[in-house]
């Protein structure tokens, strides 16, 4: 039995299939850190702890957290998808183009989601059928999809979306300040969490991330699973594109430029190993919230944006390096009595 000594009421992460010997479930460190940060910021940063600010903060995090869901699954299998933000941009541009062409939004949204699936399938096909490394493939499609977005819409912006839709995108639940979109996002978080942590599919993803060969020999269709993960990531990124367009009320080819780095930052900060095979979803959500909260709090105390980028970078490196150092220290301690 372990005793939780964290002072804050951090909910323990749903136990990821952690390797034996690890005492803490993946993500619990970052969740504790998030709670500590929120408490400190609430007392020391003027204007941080208010319903309005919570709303602003969550609106900034929504798309990052959304895309992080399927991308976490991809990273767990040891792959990566860097084209997510370009998919957001291309889907936003296509949404604008179709809207100008006179299609109803009720048709545009499903079409754009299908497009996202196709874009994801291209990634998945190149990675799983041609055996190319996902890093190389998705750097390519990162440029390709963004380029296509500019072909579709150029440097124009389409902005006359119906008010009812754009105000819904930034509306909040009653007077709580919590954005309405957090509700469907939470549903997706729970869904993804269940798939990753409580189903054979989820376990097979960790197996692939630890050893693809072993996974294949134990009867897992690695290629097919990964292909579908890329398709789902494409669809979810397209959903992100639709939401982004409505939230800012502006369809543009350069929408969400650079967002992929924020999503990957949230995932790594959340304790998911970039080499695959370990990590959990709760940590990722905590990572996204921590990045958003840090930015928000620093902005409120008028820290310039250049410094914000430096802080984010340092935070990220710390998050990636710290577990490595911890593991090495632990390894040395264990080895010493034996030698």
């Amino acid at each position: 039995m372990t005793v939780d000594t964290a002072p804050a009421p951090a909910a323990p992460a749903p136990a990821a299939p952690a390797r034996r010997g690890r005492t803490l479930p993946a993500g619990s460190v970052i969740t504790t850190f998030l709670v500590l940060f929120l408490v400190v910021a609430a007392f020391s940063v003027e204007g941080f702890a208010s319903t309005r600010n919570a709303g602003f903060l969550l609106l900034d995090v929504v798309v990052i957290a959304l895309i992080a869901l399927p991308l976490t699954l991809i990273v767990v299998t040891g792959e990566i998808d860097l084209s997510v933000a370009s998919t957001v941009g291309l889907c936003s541009a296509v949404m604008g183009r179709l809207w100008v062409a006179g299609l109803p939004l009720e048709a545009i949204v499903p079409l754009v989601l299908v497009l996202g699936g196709v874009l994801g399938a291209v990634n998945g096909f190149l990675v799983t059928r041609l055996g190319l490394p996902s890093l190389a493939v998705t750097i390519g499609t990162l440029a390709l999809y963004r380029g296509l977005a500019f072909v579709v819409l150029g440097d124009q912006a389409v902005a006359d979306f119906p008010r009812a839709w754009t105000t819904w995108a930034i509306s909040s639940i009653g007077s709580t300040g919590i954005p309405t979109v957090v509700v469907p996002l939470l549903v997706l978080v729970v869904l993804t969490g269940v798939v990753l942590h409580a189903t054979p599919i989820g376990r097979s993803l960790y197996a692939m991330g630890n050893s693809e060969d072993a996974a294949r020999f134990s009867g897992i269709d690695v290629a097919r699973t990964k292909l579908w993960l890329f398709v789902v990531t494409g669809v979810v990124s397209a959903l992100g594109g639709v939401y982004w367009t409505l939230r800012y009320g502006s369809a543009r080819a350069d929408n969400a430029t650079g967002l992929e780095l924020q999503v990957i930052a949230a995932i790594l900060l959340g304790g998911v190993s970039i080499f695959g095979g370990s990590g959990g979803l709760l940590g990722v959500i905590a990572g996204a919230l921590l990045l958003g909260s840090v930015r928000n709090a620093l902005q409120l105390v008028n820290v310039p944006s250049d410094v914000l980028n430096i802080v984010t970078g340092v935070l990220l490196i710390t998050a990636v390096v710290a577990p490595q150092v911890a593991a090495r220290v632990k390894g040395r301690r264990r080895r010493r009595p034996a030698s």
Partner: peptide, 9 residues
């Protein structure tokens, strides 16, 4: 959706 959706204008 083309009949009776939310269109431009």
């Amino acid at each position: 959706a083309a009949c009776g959706g939310t269109t431009r204008g």
